[in-house]
């Protein structure tokens, strides 16, 4: 009851969707749309659990540690600011209070966080790029050549470099990316099959 029925449900739902893929019929397409809506509806209704968990942890942290209190208040303030400003139906229109907070708080914070990674990537590169082996050398030279492309170089160096980077991206880089995509897909398909057949049940948690 606690484990066997959910495993059977996974198998039946998964199998129906796999069969549906091979049936080009309006009824099959309706079933696909309905099934997709199911996961959207279940997902959106599961979201409050995650938010509740975040807010509870933030509250508990702020209550138990006085040094953390101000940071917990900041999280709550940011959350309620966006929720209250985002509730009206027109809140997603340009110029609304919600979108102003989005443009001037969320976007710059995210852009700055990502831009800061430039500093950390540079320090990581210093450690990783010491040419100890042939393979590390290949990685170093390729990265160097690709980065040079975005720097103004005198002619004919600029043209040569552009041609070389275009070749690297279109030929060996494409081969490597394809191999990774195929490898990851085969791994994910195998894992999905294990879930479908009830071999992998970690998603259910413990009793």
């Amino acid at each position: 009851m606690k484990r066997q029925i959910p495993i059977a449900l996974v198998f039946v739902a998964g199998l129906l969707l796999v069969i549906q893929f091979f049936v080009p019929h309006p009824a099959s397409e309706f079933f696909f749309t309905f099934a997709t809506d199911w996961i959207i509806v279940i997902g959106i209704l599961a979201l409050p659990i995650g938010i509740f968990s975040l807010l509870r942890n933030t509250y508990m942290k702020g209550r138990s540690d006085s040094k953390e209190r101000i940071y917990s208040i900041a999280t709550f303030a940011g959350f309620f600011l966006m929720v209250v400003s985002g509730l009206p139906s027109g809140s997603r229109e340009a110029g609304s209070l919600h979108m102003k907070f989005f443009q001037n708080l969320l976007v710059p914070a995210q852009a700055t966080l990502f831009s800061m990674l430039a500093f950390y990537i540079a320090s990581a590169a210093y450690r990783a790029f010491r040419m100890r082996t042939l393979l590390a050398g290949v990685l170093l030279i390729t990265a160097f050549v690709v980065m040079l492309r975005l720097i103004p170089l005198p002619e004919p160096l600029s043209t040569w470099n552009s041609e070389l980077v275009r070749w690297i991206l279109a030929v060996p880089n494409m081969a490597a990316k394809r191999a990774i995509i195929i490898g990851v897909a085969l791994g994910a398909i195998t894992y999905s099959m294990k879930i479908l057949l009830g071999i992998e049940t970690a998603y259910m948690g413990r009793d």
Partner: peptide, 23 residues
């Protein structure tokens, strides 16, 4: 788990043939 079972089952059922085709 019943809700999770539908979610996981539908997601994997959609993913397997699509991953074979696209990836």
């Amino acid at each position: 788990r019943y809700a999770l079972a539908f979610y996981i089952g539908i997601s994997t059922g959609i993913y397997i043939p699509l991953a074979f085709k696209n990836f």
